[in-house]
Amino acid sequence: MTDHPPVVLPPETFQRRLLDWFDVHGRHNLPWQQNRTPYRVWVSEIMLQQTQVTTVIPYFERFMERFPDVEALAAANQDEVLHLWTGLGYYARGRNLHKAARVVMEEHDGAFPVHSLEAMASLPGIGRSTAGAIIAQSTGRRAVILDGNVKRVLTRLHAVEGWPGRPAVERRLWSLAERYTPAERVIDFTQAMMDLGATLCRRGRPECGRCPFETECLAHERGEERRFPESKPKKALPTRQTLMLLLLDDSGRVLLEQRPSSGLWGGLWSLPQFEDSEALQAWLDQHAPGAELDDEWSTFTHTFSHFRLEITPQPARVTCLDAVGESRRWFDPTDPANIGLAAPVKGLLESLRPFTLSAPAGHASESAKEPSR
């Protein structure tokens, strides 16, 4: 496999045809395309990782209303940031966004280092492609991107064999992206590449008849559009079990614990979790003696990209509790605080009424999705 593969079309022809398509069919009125700044573009790019545009728009608008600039974001506490991220998933993105804002304020005097791809890529949560997208979209300077949509377009156009996550395949795709990226109209070109992948060259239902590269696409010529790009080799998802303690006091408030800053639901507030009923009872004996257990709720499954978590809620009531401490707090479901909540916990809390426990319904999922934007 060569590091410099041949292109299907001369770069100038590819660029002209793509931009002609974009001028008519591209997306020109997304919120982050208005009043473009490195900050607004950065927030949108982080939110768009693994998440569709239609899902991101209301989150982006709420986020901008509360944190209109990097200074406001850096000054906020993590709970407030994660509260606005609740439901968007992949919470490490929210934590890294907050960390990066503070780095920009402390190390770059509040200005994003868009003059340097390396400096942008060194910020928490920003990789090579995201750094390129921020630079291109906010400054118009030439920068190459290779997000999931671009990978899919180039993989199909050239019938690139192998999973794009493999280093050799990724190097080939970066080489193609580099050769096709123009020096002019870079904002439109990068957006056009993302739009083509998101709206026509979709994974499951590509609309080849509307594609400006239908006659050159090697995957289409072979009738193998759905074979490209090749999927990551699958491994069976392991399953874990946990008991979540729904401990209510006489006022109907629920006890929450803040998760460690790294790892599963890092920094979010969750219900106390235990491996088994013995561990849960031992915790109650120590911290909430006299607590009365109710019947367990039905087990439900929350799916992550790398494992399934079977959650069994265990309701209990207590009259008094030892000192709550910094990592615990009482939460009133009827007057919720602005804190970041793990998705299944948010659903459980919403099902509560004062002094009443009602079994939850439904299936929660936080699976990795095709990064269609």
Results as ranks from 00 to 15, higher is better:
R202T: 14
E216T: 13
R202G: 03
E214W: 01
R227G: 09
L218F: 03
T215D: 13
C211S: 06
E214K: 08
R227N: 13
C211A: 04
G204L: 05
E214Q: 13
P212V: 00
C208W: 09
R226N: 08
R226L: 15
K232M: 09
E224M: 14
E224S: 14
R203E: 05
G204H: 08
E221F: 03
E214V: 04
E230V: 10
E214N: 04
E230R: 10
K232T: 06
R210G: 00
E207P: 00
F228V: 08
G204V: 02
G223C: 13
E225F: 11
A219W: 02
F228M: 05
P206A: 06
C201E: 03
S231D: 06
F213N: 01
C208V: 11
G209T: 13
F228N: 04
R210V: 01
E230H: 11
P212R: 01
C217G: 04
P206I: 06
L218K: 13
R227C: 06
P229D: 11
R227P: 02
C211I: 04
L200D: 00
A219K: 05
A219E: 01
C211R: 03
E216M: 08
C201V: 02
P229Q: 11
G209N: 13
S231R: 12
K232D: 00
R210E: 10
C217D: 03
R203L: 11
L200K: 01
G209Y: 06
R205W: 02
